[in-house]
């Protein structure tokens, strides 16, 4: 469905002895909102930098908008908007001047959107950049990234420094943008709660490898939580069934399991262990530890 915006095959990135990305192969297509999740130092920022060509792979290939990342030209780069985790600006300029300077490099810069966003995010365009708080700097970076109406938007922890109201407005804004511009948005964040409400596709990185690359809805369908209550006899110490991924709360009469729904038959299980099973779905914060654990094994 839609356009292939990024494709990596066997992408490996080493910084000296540290391997940030290990044999990553994935493809991102849009329009879509893609959530890039993972623990700290799992390679999220590195991957985002590879998408826009700021870093080059040690081995493997990466192609963005159909072009190898080392050959990205202005035609492609003008279609990509980036909000880095630590935005850098020219310190002596005011926010408005910085935006005007940036606008001179893009063939289409939406001034209406600029004033709309500045109003929405409550950003003072007259303020000096050196005097901006981290949250305001992030807001400015968001405005700068969205005004050229890009087809691909990369956001690295964009909401971590925003207050709850700004965060909410920003997430709604992303939904608008993806529909108006048919853009693909890749948003990397720790705040799973916010990601869950906005994204439709999840890419989970763990220690530099891809632990999950699927639609969020499909991921939610793949796993479930079973609350097991013994009826008559005690439960075994360990459930040997193949579909059991994790066991917590192991008591003689109670257990909580996380299972893979494919191949998990509730009735057969209830019958085999003489227990009642209550099946509950897992949301993203509940799925996250499973995904990163899976990656490790």
């Amino acid at each position: 469905m839609g356009e292939l915006v990024f494709e990596a095959s066997g992408l490996t990135k080493e910084f000296g002895e540290v391997t940030a990305l290990r044999d990553v192969s994935l493809s991102l297509s849009g329009p879509s909102i893609i959530g890039l999740i993972g623990r700290n130092a799992s390679g999220k920022t590195t991957l985002l930098r590879h998408i826009v060509g700021l870093q080059l792979p040690t081995r493997g290939q990466a192609r963005t908008l159909g072009v190898a990342t080392r050959n990205l030209r202005h035609e492609q780069l003008a279609r990509i908007g980036v909000v880095p985790d630590a935005p850098t600006f020219i310190r002596w300029m005011s926010a408005g001047e910085q935006l005007r300077y940036l606008s001179t490099f893009y063939p289409r810069w939406d001034l209406e959107r600029q004033s709309f966003l500045a109003g929405l995010l409550d950003l003072d365009l007259q303020a000096d950049i050196s005097g901006l708080s981290t949250g305001s700097a992030q807001k400015l970076a968001i405005v700068a990234a969205l005004c050229p109406r890009p087809d691909l938007i990369l956001l690295d922890e964009p909401v971590s420094n925003l207050d709850p109201i700004a965060r909410d407005q920003f997430l709604r804004l992303l939904l608008e943008v993806v529909q108006e511009d048919h853009a693909t948005i890749v948003i990397s964040s720790h705040v799973l709660h916010d990601i869950e409400s906005t994204v439709d596709w999840i890419v989970c990185l763990n220690n530099g490898t891809v632990a999950a690359d699927a639609a969020l809805d499909d991921l939610k369908d793949q796993y479930a939580e079973w609350r097991v209550l013994a009826r008559t006899r005690d439960l075994p110490d360990r459930f040997a069934d193949a579909f059991v991924v994790r066991q917590t709360v192991m008591e003689p009469r109670r257990a909580r399991l996380v299972v893979r729904t494919a191949g998990a038959d509730v009735r057969a299980f209830e019958h085999a262990h003489d227990a009642d099973v209550e099946v509950a779905p897992l949301n993203l914060p509940g799925l996250f530890p499973i995904l990163v654990d899976n990656g490790r094994h």
């Binding site: 329009p31 879509s32 909102i33 997430l171 709604r172 939904l175 608008e176 993806v178 529909q179 409400s197 906005t198 994204v199 439709d200 809805d217």
Partner: peptide
């Protein structure tokens, strides 16, 4: 429409289309 519902519920439009 997808757009109206997305705005109303703050839901991803892909979800709604699906």
């Amino acid at each position: 429409s997808t757009r109206a519902l997305s705005a109303e519920l703050s839901l991803n439009p892909m979800t709604i289309s699906r």
